[in-house]
């Protein structure tokens, strides 16, 4: 190392970057974090495998164990009903992984390094949510393919693409909920437990596995309008080529609500310095 190499006077310091430069750098930083998280994704294939295995587990369990009971009574092919719900739930598993990944960053101490760097701090979260959404696409396509091997039929390619996009979108919205939990709690174990608290009730009290009509009357309104239900219904309509009514609109509304609430909240919690 020569003196010249470390001569700080040759360095350009940005004192007042202005809005344009700030935004451009925020974009750059998000891209950098995304690049980093994609490398991590390829080094941890078990993350993707876990999401897919959970999806397949639900497909097999519900189709072969409960399929007869639920489907036969209603007089329809249960697999055609089930797969859309499983796609949505697989996407939400990805959201849980956003939570776990960010908590791991806090644990490993790499977040402290990030916080000492001249970078846009929310890029750490944004980059990760995008990386997780990309991994989710792979997971959903794999689950869909396995569903097709089990006998599932998409009514149209276009419908399948829009349906998967909606499921990914809902997963993305929940990624920010996961990010907020991770930024608040910062302990991987606690984050894992808290994720179960929102994921399981939402998942089971939804139309992902069974039609709302089969549930008690007092529960029906809650189930009908909760995010996993509206997304499951929207995806189900699209892949089966049946009318979706208000379901796509409601899905988009839910995604918007999640983003409006949890993007600022998780960024604020992440930046919070004791």
């Amino acid at each position: 190392m020569t003196t010249k190499d470390l001569d700080a006077s040759t360095r350009a310091i940005v004192i007042d970057p202005g809005v344009t430069l700030k935004l451009r750098r925020a974009g750059q930083d998000t891209g950098t974090v995304l690049w980093r998280d994609m490398i991590r994704t390829t080094r941890q294939p078990e993350m993707l495998a876990f999401a897919v295995v959970m999806g397949v587990f639900f497909l097999v369990l519900f189709n072969y164990v409960f399929g007869g009971a639920i489907g036969a009574g209603a007089g329809f092919d249960y697999l055609q009903y089930l797969l859309p719900g499983v796609l949505v739930i697989t996407a939400l598993q990805g959201a849980q992984q956003t939570s776990m990944g960010l908590a791991a960053d806090f644990n490993e101490g790499v977040n402290d390094r990030f916080r000492s760097l001249p970078m846009n701090q929310s890029a750490v979260i944004t980059g990760r949510t995008i990386a997780d959404a990309l991994r989710n696409i792979a997971g959903l396509v794999l689950v869909a393919l396995i569903g097709m091997l089990m006998g599932f039929r998409f009514s149209s390619f276009g419908g399948a693409v829009v349906a998967i996009a909606l499921a990914i979108g809902m997963g993305y919205g929940f990624s920010w909920l996961g990010a907020a939990i991770a930024a608040k709690v910062r302990q991987p174990d606690m984050v894992g437990m808290l994720s179960m608290f929102w994921l399981f009730p939402l998942m089971l009290a939804s139309t992902a596995f069974a039609p709302v009509e089969s549930m008690p009357g007092w529960l029906q309104p809650l189930v009908r309008y909760q995010p996993i239900s509206v997304a499951s219904d929207a995806v189900r309509g699209l892949v089966n080529g049946i009318p979706v009514g208000d379901r796509i609109t409601l899905t988009l509304v839910w995604i918007a609500v999640l983003l409006v609430v949890f993007v600022p909240m998780s960024v604020r919690l992440y930046r919070k310095v004791s």
């Binding site: 700080a8 310091i13 991590r40």
Partner: peptide, 22 residues
């Protein structure tokens, strides 16, 4: 001016780790 200070410092040790998967 923390944003400016961050351009002038390098931190290593207990709290500032690297990414273990990279």
């Amino acid at each position: 001016q923390p944003e400016v200070v961050r351009q002038l410092i390098g931190l290593a040790g207990q709290s500032a780790a690297v990414d273990e998967k990279l």
